[in-house]
Amino acid sequence: MTPGAAPRGGIWVATGVMTAALAIAPFVGVYPVFLMKALCFALFACAFNLLVGFGGLLSFGHAMFLGTAGYVCAHAAKIWGWPPELAILAGTLAATLLGVVAGALAIRRQGIYFAMITLALAQMMFFFYVQAPFTHGEDGIQAVPRGMLFGLLDLSETLIMYYVVLTIFVAAFLFICRIVNSPFGQVLQAIRENEPRAISLGYDAERYKLLAFVLSAALSGLAGSTKAIVFQLASLTDVHWTMSGEVVLMVLLGGMGTIFGPVVGAFAIIGLENYLSGFGQWVTVITGGIFVVCVLAFRRGIVGELGAWWAQRK
């Protein structure tokens, strides 16, 4: 949507600073469980941004990938007793497959219809999970064992879990940077800017869009699986449409089409929710308010506005 400036130089430096800051954060008084939650959502938001920010496709149903991966991962870890690495892989794979099917359907329409179709598909998955016995309905899959990663690392230790989550996040983040700056990412952005023109240049726009959709679904699935292991829980909250809305908000607030925007947005929203958790429904009202303000006055998001300000200063 917003033509995003993906700054090339300095991205390594910025990523390094971010990683270092996150690595020392638990030692300067930041609660690791909060950090893990924020990192899972940051990964989810980055995956979502890959689709909306660089592909220009606004999905309103990304919760289905987060939730599906969570359920599959939790089921594999708890019922089948798989080790965490395989459970996470299984969850990610499930989300990828769902992404292939949902993507193939949704890219048949554009713009507003695309948003409505993804929303409807996600709602269908929601009803499926409400009824399916293996999800345990309202209770969700509880007490998922964290297990031993590769048989070596005991994930029940909070700090070890934290650094595993951080590693997953940074790896996925770099992967997304690579995708965006690859020829594939450039063509994707060309399609976002002017689809007929990209088609006339000989690019198969549908294939690019589908691949972007599947990649985004897979990375969302990685976020969902990791989240299920961290919180030892997979529940209906993660497949509900409010979750799809939340990730849209994170990306919108942080800055669509920017590399770091989704991370900033995710930390801001999760921090806000943490802070406001005692205020009941006011969280929903404030969330809605942020949406309205962002759309009316702040469309480039935090990182986008900062980038524009920086560019103007020079």
Binding site: L58, G245, L252, V285, F291, C294, V295, L296
Partner: peptide, 8 residues
């Protein structure tokens, strides 16, 4: 997006 926020 705006009307979604208003709905919330």
């Amino acid at each position: 997006l705006l009307t979604f926020g208003i709905a919330l």
